[in-house]
Amino acid sequence: MSTTTTTSAPAAARFSPARTLRLGLARVDYETRVYFRQGDQVFFTFLFPVVMLTIFSVAFSGMGDVGTNPDGSGGVSQAAYYLPGMVAAGILLSGVQNLAVDIATEKGDGTLKRLGGSPLPVMSYFIGKMGQVLVTSILQIALLLAVAGLAFGVALPTDPGAWATFVWVYLLGIVTSAVLGIALSALPRSGKSATAVIIPIVLVLQFISGVYISFTTLPEWLQNVASVFPLKWLAQGMRSVFLPESFAAVEPGGSWDLGWVAIMLAIWCVAGLVVCRATFRWIRKDS
């Protein structure tokens, strides 16, 4: 009786929630440091939205403000108009592209196999990944807002309600993007093909979801296709935060439809969790 208690107690402690959380937080620090040591990853997921905001703001500055009334009043600068889309794209890149490529690479180079043979709990691994995405995306958005405000004079919202909307759209968006990134990591057949498989998906979504091109200028059938995917709703939610209320009239439904933003992001989050549960393995099934 006493022997059973002695041997089971260390096992229970080994897989205790406290230990899992402690190891997960340690992985957050590790994953974040590794992330910023990879130059290509930093550029294509961290700095890319900032670079694109700068390019669009400068290239289209000669076209004047967007949404100006016939009498010349109203409207916002090109930088202010593109800022919400770049924030949404940054969230997608930080979650979907970053994790999908990173985890697929770790499967291919044997990292997951080694971790599978270690005492590290799977949940600690995911806490590390999710924490890294949260940290880097917050830093990225802070940099985006700083560049928009200091370099291009974009006036940020002063209404607390707008920032409350930003918080819930961001949190729901970053969790959904991270979950979908983990789910998509099962798609590449090898670590070497991860970039070639994932980046085109992310790039196409950006072009059809109102990030680089005004959503209402797209053909109706393409708008319908984009409305199935989460980036369209994430970008729409961010437009409700950073653009004047008058811009809601040009949305497909004539309003920001924040209820649908929450519903669609939640649906994709649940769907991503189901796919993660069904497909994620420390070692690929065909390895």
Score class of each variant (00 low, 15 high):
Thr4Val: 04
Thr5Ala: 08
Thr6Cys: 11
Thr7Trp: 06
Ser8Val: 11
Ala9Pro: 07
Ala9Ser: 09
Ala13Val: 08
Ala13His: 14
Ala13Ile: 12
Arg14Asp: 12
Phe15Thr: 09
Phe15Ile: 11
Thr20Lys: 06
Arg22Lys: 10
Ala26Arg: 08
Val28Asn: 02
Thr32Ser: 05
Thr32Glu: 10
Thr32Met: 09
Arg33Asn: 02
Arg33Leu: 11
Arg33Lys: 06
Val34Cys: 10
Gln38Asp: 08
Phe43Tyr: 12
Pro49Val: 02
Val50Cys: 12
Thr54Arg: 02
Phe56Asn: 00
Ser57Arg: 05
Val58Gln: 02
Phe60Arg: 03
Phe60Gly: 02
Gly64Thr: 15
Gly67Tyr: 11
Asn69Gly: 12
Gly74His: 04
Gly75Val: 11
Val76Trp: 00
Ala79Asn: 10
Ala80Trp: 00
Tyr81Asp: 09
Leu83Gly: 00
Ala89Met: 15
Gly90Tyr: 03
Ser94Thr: 05
Gln97Lys: 06
Asn98Lys: 05
Asp102Val: 13
Ile103Met: 11
Thr105Ser: 11
Lys107Cys: 03
Gly108Cys: 07
Asp109Asn: 08
Leu112His: 05
Arg114Tyr: 10
Ser118Gln: 10
Ser118Gly: 10
Ser118Ile: 05
Pro119Asn: 12
Ser124Phe: 04
Phe126Trp: 15
Ile127Tyr: 06
Gly128His: 01
Gly131Ala: 08
Gly131Phe: 02
Leu134Gln: 05
Leu139Thr: 14
Gln140Asp: 11
Ala142Lys: 10
Phe152Arg: 11
Phe152Ala: 04
Ala164Trp: 14
Phe166Leu: 02
Val167Asp: 01
Gly173Asp: 02
Ser177Gln: 05
Ala178Tyr: 04
Val179Asp: 01
Val179Tyr: 01
Gly181Tyr: 01
Gly181Thr: 03
Leu184Ile: 15
Ser185Tyr: 15
Leu187Thr: 12
Ser190Phe: 01
Pro200Ile: 15
Val202Gln: 04
Leu203Lys: 13
Val204Ala: 14
Leu205Ala: 02
Val211His: 00
Val211Ala: 05
Tyr212Phe: 03
Ile213Thr: 07
Ile213Cys: 01
Ser227Pro: 06
Trp233Phe: 06
Leu234Pro: 00
Gln236Asn: 05
Val241Glu: 00
Val241Asn: 00
Ala248Val: 06
Ser255Pro: 09
Leu258Phe: 14
Gly259Cys: 11
Gly259Arg: 09
Val261Ser: 01
Val261Gly: 00
Ile267Pro: 10
Ile267Phe: 11
Trp268Ala: 06
Val270Gly: 07
Val270Phe: 03
Ala271Thr: 07
Val274Tyr: 15
Cys276Ser: 04
Ala278Tyr: 12
Trp282Ser: 07
Arg284Phe: 11
Arg284Asn: 03
Ser287Met: 12
